[in-house]
Design a protein around this nucleic acid. Structure first.
Lengths: 327, 327
DNA sequence: TTGAAAGCGCTAACAT
DNA sequence: ATGTTAGCGCTTTCAA
C-alpha cells in the first residue's frame, strides 16, 4: 500500500496525494475530497522512513528523561506524559532517551536524522549536554535552566519566585522563624538548577522580610531525624517550607508526635501534594503546562528561527488549611 | 555526509561500507579496518530514514506506558528504563506511546512502519489492545498477562506464585490468621492481570494451608481506615501481606499506633520496598529482568518466528526483620 | 490546479 | 571478497 495506489484509486497523480496530505499547495475541493476518500477507503498510511528521507523531517522528537535515584519519579513522569501528549498534538512522536546515554545519545539521534529536535529534562547548572547541544545545531529546548543560557531555549517554573512566594505568604501571616526543607544533598551537589533557584529565592525573600530562615537538605530517610533536630534546636519555629514531596509525610508525622501540627506549625509545600495527605498550602508544579510549552517552543525552532531565551512560568500559591496566622 | 562519501574515502564501494556496518557478509580484515577508519574519520552516521526505507527495518520499538492514577509510577518507570536500556543493547531505540493513544496509536506506528515491534505494559485481563495486536501482525510482547493468551507473547512476574510464597512463608512461621492488603479497588475492577493473579495465588495457598485469610483492596488514603478496621475486627491477625507499595508506610504507622509492630505483626510486602522504610520481608518485583526479557523476546519475534507463550519469572521471597515465628 | 520525474541515502539481489 | 545497480516510497522542483 503506497502513495501511488491511492493516486490510482483517486484518479490523480502521486504528487497530488502528497500535497493533499501536507497541505503545501492548494488543491481543488473536489480533488481533495476524492483523495481523502481514497485514503480512507484503502486505509493508507505514509511510510515514515520514506517521508523522512524525502522531506528531511522525521516528525519525531527526542525526550531525555532523568533516571537518577534522587529525582522524584512521579513528577518526571508527568513531564514525560505531557510532552508526549503535546507532541502528538503537533503531529510528532517521541523517542525516549535515558540520561544514561548522555551526550552520545544526542549525537546519535541527531546524526542519523532520527529526530527533528530534542527536549532535555533535569538540567544541571553546568550540564554536560549543553555544549553538545550547542555544537549539534539540533533544535532543542531544556526543561530547567543551566548557568549559562546563551543561545538556549529553556522553560521552567520560576522556582526563585516560588521560594519567595512561600516566604511572603508565611511572613504575611506573621511568621518570623522559618525553615526550608529541601531536596536530598546530592541534588544540590550537582547543582540542579531548580533546586538552587528555589533556595536562592527563599533566602532573598527572607532577608527582604527580615525573618529568620534556615536551609535543610533532606531525603525521605533523614526526614525523621531532621524533624527531631528542628524541634530541639528551633523552639520558635512556626513556618515550614518543604520542597521535597516524598518527605512531606514523614516530616509531618514526626512533628505531630511532638504535638506540632498544621496550622499552628504552618506548612507550605512546593510541588504536587501527595494524595491522601492533609490539604497543604502549596505552590504546585505545573508539569503539564511546562511540557506543553517546551513542545511549543521546540516546534517553533524546528519550523523557523524560534524564540531563544528563558521562559519562567509564574508560580501560583494556593492557600489551604496548613497555614494560618501566627498565634 | 553519506555512505558514498565513506566509500570514496576508503576506496571501496558503497555496498561494502553497508556490509561492514551490517555484518551481513564477510569482509576481509583489511577492508573492514579501512572502512571503519573512514567512518570514524568522517564521523559518518547512516540516515535512519533511508535505512528503514531500504531495509524495511526501523530499528525502533514502541513502548506503551500506562498513565493511570492508580498505577504505581516509580515501578512503571523502572520498567520503562529497563526496556530502553535493553533495547539499546540490541541497537534499537524506543518510541514512547501513552495509554491515552490506545489502539489507534498502535495502528499508526505500525502502519507507517515507524517501529519494528511493540511492548505493551499494564495489560488487563480483557485488554482492548490485544485484538488490535492480533490483527496488526506487528511483533509484540506484553508485560502482563491477559485472559486469552492465544498466540501472544507475555512476560511477567509469576504473581500467583508470589502471593502463594507469602502465604507459605507466614504459614511456615506458624501464622494462621492472615490479611492481604491489595491494590486500589479500581485496579481489580478493570481486572488487571497481575493484581488478580496475586490474590488468586494468595487464596489458593491459604486454602491449601488451612489458614484464615481475607482480601482488602486499598489506596493510600484509605490505608489508615483499613488498619483501624482490621484492628477492630481481626484481633487474632498476626500476618499481613501488602501488595501496594505506597500504602505500606501509612499502614504500618496505623498499626504501630496500637502497639502492633513487626515482627509481632508479621509483614510481607510484594513489590519494591520504599527506601527509608524498615527492612521488610518482601517479594521483589524484578522490573529490570522483566524489561530485559520482554525486549529479548521481542527481538526474537522481529528476527524470526519468536517464542509465543507466557513467561512467568519465579518470585523470590527475601526474608527480613519484619517476619518472625508466631508468639 | 495538476502532473511528470528527479532525487533523498541506503540495502540487497545479482554479477563478477 | 567485492562491485554494480535497481529499487524502497515519498517530496518537491519543474513544467504545463
Amino acid at each position: 500500500m503506497r502513495i501511488s495506489d491511492v493516486a490510482r484509486h483517486a484518479g490523480v497523480s502521486p504528487s497530488t496525494v502528497s500535497y493533499v496530505l501536507s497541505g503545501k499547495r492548494s488543491i481543488s475541493e473536489t480533488t481533495r475530497r476524492r483523495v481523502k476518500e481514497s485514503i480512507d477507503a484503502l486505509g493508507y498510511q505514509p511510510h515514515a522512513g520514506a517521508r523522512s528521507l524525502a522531506s528531511r523531517r522525521s516528525n519525531v522528537i527526542a525526550l531525555v528523561i532523568p533516571l537518577r535515584g534522587d529525582v522524584h519519579v512521579p513528577v518526571a513522569m508527568r513531564f514525560a506524559v505531557s510532552v508526549v501528549t503535546a507532541a502528538r498534538a503537533h503531529d510528532h512522536d517521541v523517542l525516549l532517551l535515558t540520561q544514561g546515554e548522555g551526550p552520545d545519545g544526542l549525537r546519535r539521534v541527531s546524526g542519523s536524522a532520527m529526530v527533528d529536535g530534542v527536549i532535555v529534562m533535569d538540567v544541571e547548572a553546568d550540564d554536560a549536554r549543553v555544549p553538545v547541544l550547542r555544537e549539534l545545531d539540533l533544535p532543542s529546548v531544556l526543561i530547567g535552566v543551566p548557568e549559562d543560557t546563551e543561545g538556549l531555549t529553556c522553560v521552567d517554573l520560576d522556582f526563585a519566585a516560588a521560594g519567595a512566594a512561600c516566604v511572603h505568604h508565611l511572613a504575611d501571616l506573621g511568621h518570623t522563624d522559618l525553615a526550608f526543607v529541601g531536596q536530598p544533598p546530592s541534588v544540590y551537589e550537582r547543582r540542579t538548577g531548580f533546586a538552587e533557584r528555589t533556595t536562592t529565592g527563599f533566602e532573598r525573600a527572607a532577608a527582604e522580610r527580615g525573618v529568620r530562615a534556615t536551609l535543610h537538605p533532606c531525603s525521605p530517610d533523614t526526614a525523621h531525624g531532621l524533624a527531631e533536630d528542628l524541634l530541639r534546636e528551633r523552639p520558635g519555629l512556626t513556618g515550614l517550607i518543604v520542597h521535597n514531596e516524598p518527605s512531606v509525610g514523614p516530616l509531618l508525622e514526626s512533628f505531630a508526635e511532638h504535638g506540632r501540627t498544621p496550622p499552628e506549625l504552618s506548612v507550605v509545600a512546593i510541588g504536587p501534594v501527595p494524595p491522601g495527605a492533609p490539604p497543604l498550602t502549596s505552590v504546585d508544579l505545573p508539569a503539564e503546562e511546562v511540557g506543553a510549552r517546551a513542545v511549543g517552543l521546540l516546534m517553533d525552532k524546528i519550523d523557523g528561527p524560534g524564540n531563544p531565551g528563558v521562559t519562567l512560568l509564574e508560580p501560583r500559591l494556593t492557600s489551604r488549611e496548613s497555614t494560618a496566622p501566627r498565634a
